[in-house]
Computed example of a mutant assay.
Amino acid sequence: MDVPISGTVYDTLLNYKGTLAELGEAVHEPPYREPPKAPVLYIKPQNTFTGFGQLIPLPDDVSELEVGASLGVVIGRRSTRVNESDAWDHVAGYTVVNDVSIPHDSLHRPAIREKARDGFCPIGPWVIDRPAVTNPDGLGVRVFVNGQLRQENTTENLIRSVAHLIADVTEFMTLNRGDVLLVGVPEGAPRVEAGDRLRIEIDQVGRLENTVVSEDEWVVGER
Rank of each mutant, 00 (worst) to 15 (best):
F49G: 01
H164Q: 13
Q148S: 13
T95Y: 08
P4Y: 04
K115P: 01
T80W: 15
W218N: 00
G7F: 05
I159R: 13
L182T: 08
P31F: 07
G7R: 06
V73L: 05
A111Y: 00
D60Y: 01
Y10H: 15
G184L: 06
E201N: 08
G51C: 09
D61W: 03
D105I: 10
S63H: 02
P186V: 03
L181P: 07
R223W: 10
E171A: 14
P190A: 01
T48G: 00
V27C: 07
N15T: 05
A87T: 10
V192P: 02
W126P: 06
G124K: 12
E22L: 06
T174Y: 11
G68T: 05
E209K: 05
V192R: 00
R177M: 11
P57Y: 01
P39W: 09
N157L: 10
P31D: 12
P35G: 05
Q46P: 06
D203F: 01
K44W: 00
P190Q: 03
A92E: 12
A38M: 09
I5E: 08
T19M: 06
S101G: 14
E156D: 06
N176T: 10
H104E: 02
R191F: 03
V91Q: 03
V219M: 15
P39M: 08
N98I: 00
R77E: 09
V3F: 04
N47G: 01
I128G: 11
Y32C: 10
V133S: 08
Y16S: 04
I128C: 13
V205G: 08
H90A: 11
G7Y: 12
F172M: 13
L208C: 04
H164N: 10
G140K: 12
G18P: 02
E152N: 09
K17C: 04
P136Q: 06
I200E: 02
H28Y: 15
D60R: 00
G53H: 08
G188M: 04
H90M: 11
L71W: 04
R109M: 12
R81Q: 15
R77M: 13
I123C: 05
G7T: 04
V169Q: 11
W218I: 03
P186W: 07
I202Y: 04
T12Q: 09
I5H: 03
S63W: 00
E114Y: 03
V141I: 15
T12L: 07
A21I: 07
W126Q: 11
V219S: 14
Y42Q: 13
Q151N: 14
G138V: 07
R130G: 07
N176G: 12
E209G: 04
S101Y: 00
T211L: 13
T211R: 14
T50V: 12
D196F: 00
V183C: 06
V169L: 12
V183K: 03
P122W: 01
R33A: 13
A26S: 14
G221M: 08
F172S: 11
V143S: 02
G51V: 05
D105R: 15
N176I: 08
E114W: 02
N153M: 05
P45E: 04
V73Q: 09
Y16I: 04
F49E: 02
I200S: 04
A21F: 07
